[in-house]
Amino acid sequence: MTLTRAMVANDINGSISDLGRALNLNWEMGYEEGQIITLETEESWSNGGQFTVCNDFPVSYQLFIENEVPCHIVDYTNEEELEAIGAEECDDEKECLIPAGTKLRVTRGEESIDLDEMGYYTIYLEYIEED
């Protein structure tokens, strides 16, 4: 059986707070305080790694999950895992995968002052445990 990105993301091996993610999009997401987001696919996040967004779309976001979230902390010594997630030679990213279905609540949504003063939106989220 070939290892997939979803299989790696669902192999929870840690719980980390203060994960971050950078996005550049062609549109504004409209994040609002209190909004609940359910991840549709597994997502790459980091806790202080070096990551460069590989597109020049005009709307930039910096997202942060403040509390601990169960995730898969990438093992950069595991070649099969790196190949499955497309992270060969990316150990400076300190990647963590959060599985699809994870629920996050927006605690600080889009504020125009962020975009005006910094050129990007800063969004804060919190992990919501399933009941």
Rank of each mutant, 00 (worst) to 15 (best):
I12P: 09
G14R: 04
S15I: 06
I16P: 03
S17Q: 08
S17P: 15
D18H: 11
D18M: 12
L19K: 09
L19Y: 07
A22I: 08
N24S: 15
N24Y: 11
L25Q: 11
L25G: 04
N26D: 15
W27C: 10
W27M: 15
E28T: 04
M29Q: 13
M29W: 12
G30H: 03
G30F: 02
E33R: 12
G34H: 07
Q35G: 05
Q35S: 05
L39D: 10
T41R: 13
E42C: 04
S44E: 05
W45T: 08
G48V: 00
G48E: 00
G49A: 12
Q50F: 10
F51S: 12
F51P: 00
T52M: 13
T52G: 12
V53P: 13
V53S: 09
C54A: 11
C54Y: 12
N55L: 02
N55S: 10
N55K: 05
D56Q: 12
D56K: 13
F57Q: 14
F57R: 14
P58T: 07
P58G: 05
V59C: 02
V59Y: 09
S60P: 10
Y61A: 00
Q62T: 05
Q62V: 05
L63K: 08
F64K: 14
I65D: 02
I65F: 07
E66L: 02
N67P: 01
N67F: 09
P70S: 02
P70F: 00
H72D: 01
H72V: 09
H72W: 01
V74G: 08
V74S: 03
V74L: 10
V74P: 02
D75Y: 03
Y76R: 06
Y76I: 04
Y76V: 05
N78R: 02
N78Y: 03
N78G: 06
E79F: 12
E80V: 14
E81D: 06
E83D: 11
E83K: 12
G86T: 05
G86A: 08
E88C: 10
D91Y: 15
E93R: 01
E93N: 01
E93V: 05
K94C: 14
K94I: 15
C96I: 10
L97S: 00
L97F: 15
I98V: 09
I98Q: 02
I98C: 07
I98K: 00
A100H: 11
K103G: 03
L104E: 06
L104A: 00
V106R: 00
T107H: 08
R108K: 14
R108A: 06
R108H: 10
E110Y: 06
E110R: 03
E110K: 04
E110S: 09
E110Q: 15
E111S: 07
I113A: 09
I113E: 11
I113W: 10
D114P: 00
D116V: 11
D116W: 11
E117F: 07
Y120V: 03
Y120S: 07
Y121N: 03
T122Y: 12
